[in-house]
């Protein structure tokens, strides 16, 4: 299978603390991969290393964009460049632009695919107007797909919680990624919302052809969605495999439940 992301021997030190250690992971095209592990295992740090928020201490991160046969190494590339290259992410604790409307939030996602500069903005030539108009249309189309069209003119801060989580996904989609990184997308959602999210994520993969890597604690969601699962604990990979394999893996059960209950 064709890879879109390949992480090799990734390590990250914070001072003396080894947050990630010798981590390998790969995501193939049109695959949904989950990264699970107990709290503090280093999952979000892993996302931050891939998306350029922290430069990893060692190891390699390669991406394979569409139509590119050569791998592109993105260690230490700035977050905005990573996004330009086609990796988009959401955040564990929602980071929307609260005082901008839903539409504007998504339009910010379009930013890196637009070109108008300062002069373009001041002169507002035909190409700028066309670009702006297209940005509005594209953003609205994404909102419709994600099911947020009814909120289009609301301020992001006034949205219900579940809708805010979806807006984060919509905003990430607007950057035209080939790989979407979701950091606990179901956190704080009720069972009904989670089921909707399950469908949405599958729909994104099937209809848009976007590969997905997600961090999630909701095991039901993880098991239903994922093609493959990686399990980390204390910054190390302790298991990988299909949902079925992971479910029955004693190492994973131990990491989650502790030794006493294991027996």
């Amino acid at each position: 299978m064709e890879s879109v992301l390949k992480v090799q021997n990734l390590g990250m030190n914070f001072g003396g603390l080894r947050a990630l250690d010798d981590l390998d992971l790969d995501v193939c095209r049109n695959e949904i991969v989950a990264l699970i592990g107990p709290n503090g295992a280093g999952k979000t740090t892993f996302f931050n290393c891939i998306t350029g928020i922290y430069p990893p201490t060692d190891g390699d991160v390669f991406i394979f964009a569409r139509g590119m046969d050569k791998p592109d190494r993105i260690n230490g590339v700035k977050p905005n460049k990573v996004t330009e290259k086609g990796l988009a992410r959401t955040f564990q604790n929602i980071r929307l632009f609260p005082n901008m409307t839903v539409l504007e939030n998504v339009m910010i996602g379009r930013h890196c695919r637009m070109h108008a500069g300062v002069l373009g903005a001041i002169l507002r030539g035909r190409s700028t107007i066309r670009e702006e108009k297209k940005a509005v249309e594209d953003s609205y189309a994404i909102l419709e797909k994600i099911g947020l069209a009814q909120f289009v003119d609301e301020f992001a801060k006034n949205l219900p919680y579940g809708a805010q989580r979806r807006l984060e996904i919509a905003r990430a989609m607007a950057t035209e990624p080939f790989l979407l990184l979701l950091d606990e997308p179901a956190a704080g959602m009720n069972p009904y919302e989670t089921r909707e999210l399950d469908e949405l994520i599958k729909q994104i993969r099937d209809e848009e052809g976007i590969s997905i890597l997600l961090i999630e604690h909701d095991m039901k969601l993880v098991m239903s969605l994922s093609d493959r699962i990686f399990v980390v604990d204390y910054g190390k990979k302790i298991a990988q495999g299909t949902p079925e394999e992971i479910r029955n893996n004693p190492v994973v059960i131990k990491a989650y439940l502790g030794e006493e209950i294991d027996a």
């Binding site: 977050p79 955040f91 996602g109 930013h111 670009e131």
Partner: peptide, 25 residues
């Protein structure tokens, strides 16, 4: 400027710097 791509980026920057960068700005 305010109603343009540049202006939107400024406002997004004010609202949340990290999310702003993650959106490719």
């Amino acid at each position: 400027l305010q109603d343009s791509r540049v202006g939107r980026a400024w406002i997004a920057l004010r609202e949340d710097e990290i999310a702003c960068q993650a959106m490719g700005i």
